[in-house]
Structure formats: C-alpha cells, structure tokens
C-alpha cells in the first residue's frame, strides 16, 4: 500500500478537498454580500466597490481556478466511480484534467486580468 502514498490519485484527492474548501469559504461570504441587496442600492454598491480593488480581482482569478479544477476533477471522480473499469486509466484521466484545466484557465485568466487593469485605469 505504501506504493500509493503520494500517488496521483491521492494528490488529486487532496487538491479536490483544498479547492472545495476554498470555494465553500467564498460561497459563504458571497451569500452574505449578495443579501445586502435587500437593504437597497447605497449599501450594496458601497460593498461591491470594495470587490473592485485589484487584490480581490486576483482572488477572483483564484476562485475561478478552484471551481474549474474541482469541476473537472469531479467529472473524473464520477467517471471512475460509475465505470470502475475505467480506473485503470485514472492517471491518463488526471492528465486530461490538467491539460483541460490550463486550456480553459489561461484565456480566462487573461480576460480577468484585463478586467483588473480596466478597473485601475478608470
């Protein structure tokens, strides 16, 4: 069993937990900030203005990365759980998750960085 320690499956599992925890933390905050719409435009707009700071823009890119990884690896988890025969290919499936992750994440990160810069210039 010690062969599996640090194997791809366990690293995927650890990353899945960490990204899930990160997304959950943001979700809790996001439900609270969105609820402020019930108190009208002034309060809501003032709180949203805080999120326009570049540091939150960087956090937003991190949030996207966490959701994207969790989603892609989640699809892999469902695939091996319901098609156990496929688990011989679980390493290749994880490689596919990583490749797809970067194919989607890189252009999105470029666009989101553009949003941060747009905010800094006006």
């Amino acid at each position: 069993m010690s062969l599996y320690r640090g194997g791809i499956g366990q690293w995927a599992w650890l990353l899945h937990r960490l990204s899930g925890l990160g997304v959950l933390l943001f979700l809790v905050i996001h439900i609270l900030d969105t609820a402020l719409v019930l108190w009208g435009a002034d309060l809501y707009n003032r709180v949203i203005a805080i999120y326009r700071m570049p540091i939150f823009g960087i956090g937003e890119i991190g949030l996207f990365a966490a959701v994207l990884f969790h989603a892609l690896n989640g699809i892999r988890v469902v695939a091996v759980d319901f098609r156990p025969a496929w688990s011989v290919y679980h390493k290749q499936m994880f490689q596919a998750v990583v490749v797809l992750f970067f194919l989607i994440f890189i252009p999105v990160a470029v666009i989101m960085t553009g949003h941060i810069l747009e905010g800094m210039h006006g």
């Binding site: 999120y51 959701v67 989640g74 469902v78 747009e118 905010g119």
Partner: peptide, 29 residues
C-alpha cells in the same frame, strides 16, 4: 456526485457570465 454534475454547468456558467463576460466593474445594484 449528482449535485456535482449539475454544478459543473450552474457554477461554471455563473462564473463565465458574471466574472468573464461581465465583471465586477459592470455589476452594481
């Protein structure tokens, strides 16, 4: 597993709409 598969579309859809096609600079009351 079931909720996760639905959330792939719901959450990623939400992120693309609100944070990629729109942005925090176009979102307000």
């Amino acid at each position: 597993r079931a909720s996760g598969m639905l959330l792939v579309f719901l959450a990623l859809g939400h992120l693309f709409i609100m944070h990629v096609f729109n942005s925090i600079h176009s979102i307000d009351y």
